[in-house]
Simulated assay, not measured.
Amino acid sequence: MKKKFTHLLFAIILVASVTIGLVGHASEINFSAKAILPENQRSKEISYFDLRVVAGETQKISIELTNDTEKEITVYASANSAITNNNGIVDYSYKDTKKDSSAIFTFSEIASIPKEIILPKKSNKIVECTIDIPKDSFDGYVLGGLYFEQKEAKEAKNEGALAVGNRFSYVVGVLLSETDREVRPELALNDVKVTQLNGKNAVIMNIQNKEAAMIKELQVDAKLYYEDETKPRYENHQESLKMAPNTNFNYKIDLNDQPFVAGNYTVKIKANDGYKDWTWERKLTIREKEAKEYNAIASNLPPDQKKKVPWTIIVIIIVVTLAVILGIIYYFNQKIKKERKRQQKKYQKLKKKLDKPKS
């Protein structure tokens, strides 16, 4: 039963991710990718890799790429670690991701695949991925994906922004495990700070899954309190979020078209993965300068709520700076003039002395 639940959980996470990867018109996809399941596949009823691996061994897996078109196409490939993006979705589309501090190793560190594959017209090609399993054994799961993206055609590049919808990708998920030992998620709150997301003021909280366990149904409730107020000024509640093993993401509280107000705040957060509750409380200070800077460039604030750029202060700084520069120039000019006069007097005395007739 536990094994079936794991398969179902991973399938849900993978389908959500692949759905995001297939961007554009489905009828125009020029290639497909299919996993060729090896003998150590834990279930033959699924279409992704769910492999029981052995510490210190090398695992090779194969993917069949198919080009059904009348044109040769180029496919870029990468072995990517699964991350949790800031929407609370497991994502396989990023190649260069920062390794989470809780991860001993990641999928991208142990897996390699050809970076560029040429598919002739009306053809199939088997692509091999090599996975070097670390010598030290592990419990739980390592999650990644083999990501395939069609190279953009020259004519598409010339079309500019209109060509974005014609780029397609496939993900074949890879789930690695060595034991049946159950590992439960362990969440931690790393950081709380103010920022802007897509030009909108927000407070973000970095939540980390420190264990090699997947989270299928994460609920997060976050509230932002101003000074000693008992009612939250802003809050956000979300359900059905997902997290990959040993990853972190930024959960946000949107200020809903409101400006930052300087002062001291308290952030209270509750999280639940269906088995365990976590609660955190953090203090947050928004400084006047910081609030003005963010409010001035926020794209969603009404004009009367935007804090104007402090031109008076800027003008004063410029005037003072110019005054200092001019003062320095004046000082050195006066010093040079005095030195010239002194040298001139010295010269006149010497000249008189030389011109004086001898008796």
Rank of each mutant, 00 (worst) to 15 (best):
A212S: 14
E239P: 01
T74C: 04
K283N: 12
K2C: 05
I117V: 13
I286C: 02
A222T: 08
I63P: 00
I253S: 03
E227H: 03
L187A: 00
A291W: 06
E64Y: 04
S32N: 07
S169K: 05
S137Y: 10
F148C: 04
K306L: 10
K223V: 06
D277H: 10
I13A: 13
P310T: 00
S78L: 12
H7K: 09
N158P: 00
Y225M: 02
Q150E: 15
D221T: 10
A77I: 05
E39C: 07
A291M: 08
A26Y: 13
F107A: 00
S17L: 03
S299Y: 08
N248I: 05
N87W: 12
P114K: 09
T106L: 05
A213E: 12
E159W: 14
I204A: 07
I215D: 08
T230F: 09
V15F: 14
I110V: 06
S177F: 10
S81Y: 04
S123D: 11
K358F: 05
L65W: 10
S47F: 09
F260V: 02
V174W: 11
N209T: 08
T84A: 00
I104K: 14
T19K: 15
K307D: 14
V171L: 13
N87V: 00
I297A: 00
E70S: 15
I297K: 06
K34C: 07
Y48V: 03
E28L: 13
L22K: 14
A11V: 09
S43P: 08
N201G: 04
T279Y: 09
A163R: 04
L65V: 05
V267E: 02
Y265R: 02
A55P: 01
I313K: 08
L162T: 12
D221H: 05
E155M: 07
T230Q: 12
I13F: 12
I133V: 10
L322C: 09
Q258L: 09
L51T: 03
N248E: 11
A103H: 03
K60V: 14
S137P: 05
V53G: 01
I89V: 12
K95C: 09
F10N: 06
K115G: 12
Y170N: 13
D191L: 15
V142L: 03
K3Q: 14
K99P: 04
Q208S: 15
A296G: 06
Y330N: 06
K358V: 13
K292D: 08
V203N: 02
G145D: 06
L146M: 08
L8N: 14
P134C: 04
A262T: 03
Y92M: 11
N300L: 01
K99F: 08
K335W: 06
L301M: 02
S169E: 09
R287K: 13
L326R: 03
L143M: 11
V220E: 00
V183D: 07
N85S: 05
R342C: 03
G88K: 08
P357H: 02
T69Q: 09
Q238S: 06
Y147A: 07
S43L: 07
T247M: 06
S177T: 07
V324M: 09
K99L: 04
F5I: 11
L189S: 01
A188S: 11
Y331Q: 01
T230C: 07
I110L: 07
T179E: 07
Q59P: 06
P245Q: 00
T69L: 13
V15I: 14
I269M: 10
P38G: 05
